[in-house]
Design a protein around this nucleic acid. Structure first.
Ligand SMILES: NC(=O)c1ccc[n+]([C@@H]2O[C@H](COP(=O)([O-])OP(=O)(O)OC[C@H]3O[C@@H](n4cnc5c(N)ncnc54)[C@H](O)[C@@H]3O)[C@@H](O)[C@H]2O)c1
Ligand SMILES: NC(=O)c1ccc[n+]([C@@H]2O[C@H](COP(=O)([O-])OP(=O)(O)OC[C@H]3O[C@@H](n4cnc5c(N)ncnc54)[C@H](O)[C@@H]3O)[C@@H](O)[C@H]2O)c1
Lengths: 209, 209
DNA sequence: CGGAACTCGTGATCCGATTCACAAGCGGGG
DNA sequence: CCCCGCTTGTGAATCGGATCACGAGTTCCG
């Protein structure tokens, strides 16, 4: 479930706030979801809440962490070290959560061979070696849209089975590869869509009548 | 619908590729969705496809653009000009799509008053003025998590009704304000979750039996 | 010890989104 | 002029997630 990370964050906050036990109501409030949903989600992990009392925060953190595989670390390679790629490579939060950025890939000759924010930059030709050397599990695509499919193909060929794509393109990959797309322009367009819908008065064609 | 921007991109590609007409099948293929879904979505816009022929690409671009309100421009203010905020402010694609970044907000005294990538930086105290002066419609939160709720409150108080939040927090805002959250750590954790699930052999506790 | 108050687990229900399936409309060719 | 193949539009069926509702277990107090 996509909500587990949110629960984990809420639980961590509760733990540092000193709570040793909590209820599905509190957790739901903190996570911005329905209480029944929380209980159902947690029951999927073969949960161990106590009726009449609630959940043990520490134990629940352990369970959710295990389900998410937080104990594992999954090395990441960032492809395309432009505005966005640099921000990602420079972000310390990823390493803390088990996703160290171990290398970057770029076509820019001025970058290849350099180390940016502690991350070594390689040519796309060396992608397979980089993946093998560092046991890379996840590829991030932050290249221009035109280079995205080629980059995805190279990642797949190198054995990467998880891709996070920022490039605003529809990638085609084999079935066994999972792609998650994050498209910021689309997010803004959705917000704009609703803004427009809420102000139909002077913008709809009907206002001419 | 959240798919309209994807259709619009596919249609633009088809237009520049020289197609003057297209079918729901082609559009579905390009957009990575089901053909029936494409037809149903388009029928919501009071569509004008021709049976036996397909859709007129130019006309459909016009219809989808109108539905999305692409003609409008929605000025954006970026709050928190760190790694991520800078990448967003520097991105040219937003302005092209009608989302110009007209100002940035930061607490860092070294930034306030400066112009970064053509974007003037203001103190949080001046947020209300900035919103009023530039008719800001959308606020982007790229501050550290601890400052996110406060920033959201200021945005709402200034009259902003759409927020794009990168801060990995659950914001509480009035009902009439729309929040879209983009959490990159969560995206990575979801990928990690599936990676782990696909390799249960030597990681599950049961392998000890 | 009994009962009241609380909270979890979960079967049943609901609801919107997706998919299916096919009739209706269009164009082109004979 | 008619028929055949193609594609849309859309009611019907399906699916999956969200929500409801309630039985069951726990604590605590009198
Ligand atoms: N910056 C943002 O805020 C933002 C917002 C929304 C979407 N995006 C998308 O993210 C992607 C990257 O954005 P950006 O602003 O960082 O762009 P950018 O132009 O700043 O950086 C692109 C980088 O990719 C490198 N590159 C080009 N071809 C490559 C290849 N084949 N292999 C590896 N590297 C290659 C370039 O050398 C450059 O360093 C784009 O697709 C853009 O549409 C960015
Ligand atoms: N950089 C990434 O790739 C990345 C990835 C995932 C999540 N995030 C999240 O995005 C947010 C920003 O990340 P970042 O890497 O840009 O952080 P950053 O530390 O580089 O930048 C934060 C900026 O916000 C400013 N700021 C602090 N308090 C503020 C306030 N009250 N009002 C306005 N500005 C304020 C700081 O001066 C700084 O310039 C964080 O919440 C982070 O968790 C970032």
């Amino acid at each position: 479930m996509a909500r587990l990370p949110v629960y984990l964050r809420s639980l961590s906050e509760l733990a540092t706030a000193g709570s040793s036990t909590t209820s599905s109501d509190v957790l739901a409030e903190r996570s911005g979801v329905n209480a029944a949903k929380v209980r159902k989600d947690l029951s999927y992990l073969g949960t161990h809440g106590t009726r009449g009392v609630g959940y043990d925060v520490r134990h629940l953190i352990f369970e959710v962490s295990r389900a998410l595989g937080v104990a594992n670390t999954w090395p990441v390679v960032v492809c395309g070290l432009g505005n966005l790629g640099r921000a990602l490579a420079n972000h310390t939060g990823f390493t803390e959560r088990g996703f160290p950025v171990v290398a970057a890939i770029d076509v820019n000759p001025a970058l290849i061979g350099m180390t940016v924010d502690g991350v070594p930059v390689h040519s796309p030709d060396r992608l397979a070696d980089v993946v093998a050397d560092h046991d890379v599990a996840i590829g991030v695509i932050a290249t221009p849209p035109g280079a995205a499919q080629d980059t995805a193909d190279r990642l797949v060929a190198a054995g990467v089975r998880s891709i996070l794509d920022f490039s605003s393109t529809v990638l085609s990959v084999p079935d066994h590869v999972e792609v998650r797309a994050v498209d910021l322009s689309t997010e803004l367009q959705i917000l704009g869509f609703h803004l427009q819908r809420d102000l139909p008065a002077d913008r709809s064609p009907r206002s001419l009548a």
